[in-house]
Deep mutational scan, measured.
Amino acid sequence: TIEDAIKKLLKLAQKGQPYTFGDFTVTSEEEAKKLAKWLKKQL
């Protein structure tokens, strides 16, 4: 689910690992949080 993807994304971001989700490449926890907010709006 999208919720699971968001959780995984935040965990990876906390470890400092870049994470690619579709067109987004997230390289920081701050970016992960922005992406998570955006994804929730898409639901």
Rank of each mutant, 00 (worst) to 15 (best):
T1V: 09
T1A: 08
T1L: 13
T1K: 07
T1S: 07
T1W: 14
I2N: 01
I2H: 02
I2K: 01
I2V: 11
I2L: 08
I2A: 03
I2C: 12
I2M: 04
I2D: 01
I2W: 13
E3N: 04
E3C: 15
E3F: 15
E3K: 10
D4T: 06
D4S: 08
D4N: 09
D4C: 15
D4I: 05
A5P: 01
A5G: 02
A5E: 08
A5T: 11
A5H: 09
A5S: 03
I6T: 00
I6M: 04
I6P: 00
I6F: 08
I6N: 00
I6K: 00
I6Y: 04
I6A: 01
K7T: 05
K7A: 06
K7V: 07
K7F: 05
K7D: 08
K7N: 09
K7E: 09
K7G: 03
K8P: 01
L9W: 03
L9T: 00
L9D: 00
L10E: 03
L10D: 01
L10G: 01
L10Y: 04
L10T: 02
L10H: 02
L10I: 12
L10V: 06
K11L: 13
K11M: 13
K11A: 12
K11C: 14
L12F: 10
L12C: 15
L12D: 07
L12P: 02
A13R: 03
A13H: 03
A13F: 13
A13Y: 06
A13E: 01
A13Q: 03
A13P: 02
A13D: 02
Q14C: 15
Q14W: 14
Q14Y: 11
Q14K: 09
K15C: 05
K15T: 12
K15A: 10
K15L: 13
K15D: 10
K15G: 08
G16T: 06
G16F: 15
G16C: 15
G16R: 03
G16K: 03
G16I: 08
G16P: 02
Q17A: 09
Q17I: 15
Q17N: 12
Q17D: 13
Q17V: 15
P18V: 11
P18R: 06
P18W: 15
P18S: 07
P18K: 09
Y19I: 15
Y19K: 07
Y19N: 08
Y19G: 13
Y19L: 14
T20I: 12
T20G: 07
T20Q: 11
T20L: 14
T20Y: 06
T20V: 11
T20M: 09
T20N: 06
F21M: 04
F21K: 01
F21I: 05
F21P: 04
F21A: 03
F21S: 03
G22E: 11
G22T: 06
G22N: 13
G22W: 14
G22C: 15
D23Q: 08
D23V: 14
D23H: 05
D23T: 09
D23G: 10
D23S: 10
D23I: 15
F24H: 02
F24C: 14
F24Q: 01
F24L: 08
F24D: 02
F24E: 01
F24P: 04
F24A: 02
F24W: 12
T25Y: 12
T25K: 05
T25C: 06
T25L: 13
T25H: 12
V26W: 05
V26S: 01
V26A: 03
V26Q: 01
V26M: 03
V26C: 15
V26L: 04
T27K: 07
T27N: 07
T27P: 03
T27V: 12
T27A: 05
T27M: 06
S28T: 12
S28N: 09
S28P: 05
S28K: 02
S28W: 12
S28V: 07
S28F: 14
E29H: 10
E29G: 08
E29N: 04
E29R: 07
E29F: 14
E29L: 14
E29Q: 08
E29C: 15
E29W: 14
E29I: 13
E29K: 08
E29V: 14
E30F: 10
E30M: 07
E30K: 10
E30C: 08
E30T: 05
E30I: 07
E30V: 09
E30W: 09
E30A: 08
E31D: 12
E31G: 05
E31V: 15
E31M: 08
E31C: 15
E31L: 14
E31S: 11
E31K: 03
E31A: 08
E31T: 07
E31I: 14
E31Y: 11
A32E: 01
A32F: 08
A32M: 12
A32W: 14
A32T: 09
A32I: 10
K33Y: 10
K33E: 08
K33D: 07
K34Y: 07
K34Q: 10
K34H: 05
K34W: 12
K34L: 10
K34I: 08
K34F: 06
L35I: 04
L35H: 00
L35A: 01
L35N: 00
L35Q: 00
L35P: 00
L35Y: 01
L35S: 00
L35D: 00
L35T: 00
L35W: 05
A36S: 05
A36K: 04
K37E: 14
K37C: 08
K37D: 13
K37P: 00
K37V: 08
K37Q: 13
W38D: 01
W38C: 11
W38T: 01
W38F: 06
L39E: 00
L39K: 00
L39Q: 00
L39V: 02
L39G: 00
K40I: 13
K40P: 02
K40G: 07
K40D: 10
K41D: 12
K41V: 05
K41Q: 13
K41G: 06
K41S: 11
K41I: 06
K41N: 09
Q42G: 05
Q42V: 12
Q42H: 05
Q42F: 13
Q42M: 11
Q42L: 12
Q42D: 01
L43H: 06
L43N: 03
L43P: 01
L43W: 08
L43D: 02
L43R: 02
L43F: 05
L43T: 03
